[in-house]
Simulated scan of single mutants.
Amino acid sequence: MRTNEEIVRILIDEKNKQNLSISELARRVDMAKSAISRYFNFSREFPLNRADDFARVLGISTEYLLGISEDEIPNKTKKQSPIVEEINKISSQLEEPRQKIVLNTATNQLDEQNQEKKRLSFFSNKVDFDKISNIVPYDHNKEGYAPVIGEIAAGTPILCEQNFEGMRPVYGKYAGRDDVFWLRVKGESMETEIHDGSFALILQDPDLSEGSIGAIRFIDDNEATLKCIFYEYDENGYPLRLRLEPLNPNYPIQYADEYNPAKIEGRLVKVEQDY
């Protein structure tokens, strides 16, 4: 059987041959990008129980990836189940347009199954700013404005009219974008870098790297907070919880997990303080 390093190097080679980014590979195998990055930089052992998934996505056999014979693969199904055999038998008799319907149905079922496997879903969907009334239209050819979100109304998404406090100018490379918003900072947990009452420009970006500062909204009380974000995973590489660390050592570390669910609303890209 191949060593961990040999397995990972095969995965990297196959990924590069197909011009796949780590983000795309992560999406196809339904795993966090940061987890795969750890496997690829050899800071974490590749989970052998996910070998089938990676091999399938990269178009290679599990036997080749692991460097073992089929009989040596633990828990490997040697024979298709009667249901799978019957599906294949019926599908082979269908005309191509109907086969595509079967394929789409199976793909949707697999996506739902993979979603159910996840312990947590930390990432918010992209917000439709048209749902917030009276926003100044963005003009990509000049400096722009972004909505200011202040107190979070109980039971509402972070970006909705109840939380909208007005508009604030945005300059530089984030001007004219429709995926940024200002968050008015409350509290001193991020002192001495981010002060109470300052304005944090948030870019809607679910792909936050370890240690980056993001806006996190706790679902139960709808409170939004800025914290340094760290990911913790289970042995299979699935998200287990978020560790939210303040910059101010006088404040405690918080955790977001299945008992205290949260959403990542975006990444901090700029801080402004009015005096």
Rank of each mutant, 00 (worst) to 15 (best):
M167G: 06
H140R: 15
T105R: 04
F129R: 09
R267H: 07
V127I: 10
I87T: 03
E112G: 04
E151N: 13
P169T: 13
F46Q: 03
L120G: 03
E193C: 10
K186R: 14
S34W: 04
Y138V: 12
S92K: 10
G67Y: 07
K142V: 00
Q204D: 05
Q273E: 13
G237H: 02
A154F: 08
K79S: 01
I60H: 01
D30C: 03
K76D: 02
E143A: 12
D196E: 13
L110D: 09
A175T: 02
V136T: 15
A32W: 01
S81Q: 15
D52P: 04
V8H: 04
I158V: 14
Q273L: 14
R241M: 02
I12D: 09
D274Y: 15
L268S: 02
D205Q: 06
L25T: 09
A175S: 11
L120P: 01
V57H: 01
F42M: 15
P74W: 04
E86I: 06
G155D: 12
R50S: 04
V185E: 10
D139V: 11
V180T: 12
V8N: 00
N163Q: 14
I135S: 14
N222T: 10
R27Q: 01
I194C: 04
N88Q: 15
D128K: 10
T62D: 00
P249M: 02
N260V: 02
N41C: 13
I152D: 00
D128F: 07
N260F: 07
E24D: 14
K100Y: 04
D139R: 14
A256K: 00
S21C: 09
S121W: 00
P157Q: 13
L58H: 03
V180E: 05
P249R: 06
M167V: 08
T192S: 12
H140A: 13
E45S: 13
N250K: 05
L203S: 10
L58G: 01
D274G: 14
D257A: 05
R44T: 07
G197N: 03
Q273K: 15
N19L: 11
T225L: 12
E70L: 09
R168W: 04
N19H: 13
I87G: 00
P246L: 08
G67I: 13
A106I: 12
N134R: 02
E6P: 05
S81K: 14
R28H: 02
N49C: 07
L103P: 05
D207C: 01
K118A: 02
Y251F: 15
N75W: 07
L11A: 06
L183Y: 02
V29A: 06
E85A: 08
I7W: 03
R241Q: 08
Y233C: 01
L103R: 11
L242K: 06
V185L: 10
N236M: 06
F40K: 06
I229N: 03
I158C: 08
L242P: 00
N114H: 11
E223T: 09
W182K: 11
K100E: 15
L208N: 10
G150A: 03
S121C: 00
Y138S: 11
A106N: 10
N75G: 12
P97E: 11
N141P: 00
E223H: 00
S121A: 09
G211F: 11
